[in-house]
Design a protein around this nucleic acid. Structure first.
Length: 427
RNA sequence: GCCGCCGUAGCUCAGCUAGGUAGAGCGGCUGGCUGUUAACCAGUCGGUCAUAGGUUCAAGUCCUAUCGGCGGCGCCA
């Protein structure tokens, strides 16, 4: 008797063999002479049959949905079984008999979210979380292949990265601190030692946004490196995204198909991505009848209209400096334009923002003041420009937004196991 | 910050427009039947109609407030 994973049985490796599986009861259909059990483990779902003359019968009768068990039996190929294989049960050992499981056939969004801790057992969440883990793996592979060093920035911070209004404040002993909104400034510190660096870490935003693409806690893929310009940045970002999509289409094909995601969409993500300047984007929108003027930031509807034209990931770059953060470098001959780039995808809009960072101390101080920020809050950040400043670039990519687009999720909350939104933080 | 929608049985919902005895399906339980595919058939159990107040002879239904949830905008990844 060998202990096997359900995936191995479904793949046909165990036909005719005696095996044991460990897992949970997914469905149960009871008859007078036969009980059908669908057993799930982390790898899949297998049908098991229990006949009345089997030693397993009495335990099978007691089983409830979501009870945990070890089931021993013989694998048999049968066209009537979902997946083509089933296990004819010979012995069942109940590990934990489940109480009446609250999730049944019909379920509302609200109820499913209330019992998130139980819903995570569903095939759907199992598949999404596996793909998410793979996407994280492919991301690390790509950074590593480009000689980046992974670093670990702090989550507790003492000064804002972006505007102060969206910071979560907290008591840190007797001090007021914040949860970080981005690790960018800390990555900038580390390039002076390690040069090419990246991190995958949470970012926290106290934005009261109630949409299918906002979380208050999300995982941020951020990279920063010296001696590079806008073109290097865009090339890196598109190669990263193409690598992630190609690898996912290739290595997670089965999961994508079971989930009902569009494999072709992912395999067809290829470089180079379309690139348009902010000015071109405004002109394109004007042709569509938009009232947007040069200098206005895009609304979500504008982004959506542009994304529909391309129907694949693309870049918008060279934004008005006024709508971008203080650390964005501007063109010497065009100080009104910032070297900033957003990557957009259909339906979701922005999934990434990056740019060239201001490396001149005096310009940076001027920008900090113009934005109404306090110079003393950025003392260590200014030190980076005092001691051997270098031109450098960086970007941040929202992992869950990327997954929402890749997997055609209806809502970003399913891209993370324990979503935090304005109203949800349980369990 | 602004706007819209929702809250009725364990779960999914109907009933509200036009006020008049609280309904169905699923699940549970009991029985039947079946190589079943989130099976089927019969019976049965199951309700502070989110909460508070108001209008009315009469409120699940109309009005007000509160609480909880969802979505859209702004902002953002």
């Amino acid at each position: 008797m060998t202990l096997v994973k359900i995936r191995e049985v479904l793949d046909g490796c165990c036909d005719g063999k005696k095996v044991a599986v460990r897992g949970w009861v997914y469905r149960k259909r009871e008859g007078k002479t036969m009980i059908f059990l669908l057993i799930r483990d982390s790898t899949g779902v297998i049908q098991c049959t229990v006949r009345k003359d089997s030693a397993a019968w009495s335990e099978a009768e007691r089983l409830t949905i979501e009870s945990s068990l070890t089931l021993e039996g013989t694998v048999k190929s049968d066209p009537r079984a979902p997946g083509g294989y089933e296990i004819v049960a010979e012995a069942i050992s109940i590990i934990g008999l489940a109480e009446l499981f609250p999730i049944t056939k019909d379920k509302s969004e609200q109820f499913i979210r209330d019992v998130r801790h139980l819903w995570l057992r569903s095939r759907r969440m199992n598949l999404i979380m596996k793909i998410r883990a793979n996407v994280l793996g492919f991301t690390r592979e790509f950074f590593k292949s480009q000689d980046f060093t992974e670093v670990s920035p702090p989550m507790f911070i003492s000064a804002a990265v972006e505007g102060g209004s969206t910071l979560f404040g907290l008591k840190y002993f007797d001090q007021d601190l914040y949860l970080t909104q981005s690790s960018q400034l800390y990555l900038e510190i580390l390039i002076y030692s390690l040069e090419k660096v990246y991190c995958i870490a949470p970012s926290f935003r106290a934005e009261k946004s109630r949409t299918i693409r906002h979380l208050t806690e999300y995982w941020h893929i951020e990279g920063e490196w010296p001696f590079a310009d806008m073109h290097d940045l865009m090339r890196f970002e598109e190669e990263l995204l193409a690598y992630i999509c190609q690898q996912t289409a290739d290595k997670c094909k089965k999961q994508l198909e079971e989930l009902g995601a569009d494999v072709t969409k992912l395999s067809s993500v290829k470089t180079p991505f379309p690139r348009i300047t902010y000015t071109e984007a405004v002109e394109r929108l004007a042709k569509k009848g938009s009232a947007l003027k040069w200098g206005d930031d895009f609304g979500y509807d504008d982004e959506k209209a542009l994304a529909e034209e391309f129907n694949k990931p693309f870049f918008i770059y060279d934004y008005p400096a006024a709508v971008k953060a203080f650390y964005c470098k501007t063109y010497r001959e065009h100080p009104e334009i910032a070297m900033s780039v957003d990557m957009l995808v259909p339906r979701i809009g922005e999934i990434s923002t990056g740019g060239v960072r201001e490396d001149d101390k005096d310009t940076l101080i001027r920008r900090i003041r113009e934005m109404g920020l306090k110079e003393e809050d950025y003392d260590w950040y200014l030190d980076l420009r005092r001691y051997g400043t270098v031109p450098h670039v960086g970007f941040g990519l929202g992992l869950e937004r990327l997954l929402t687009w890749m997997l055609d999720l209806e809502n970003i909350i399913d891209a993370i196991p324990f979503p935090r939104t304005t109203r949800r933080f349980y369990p």
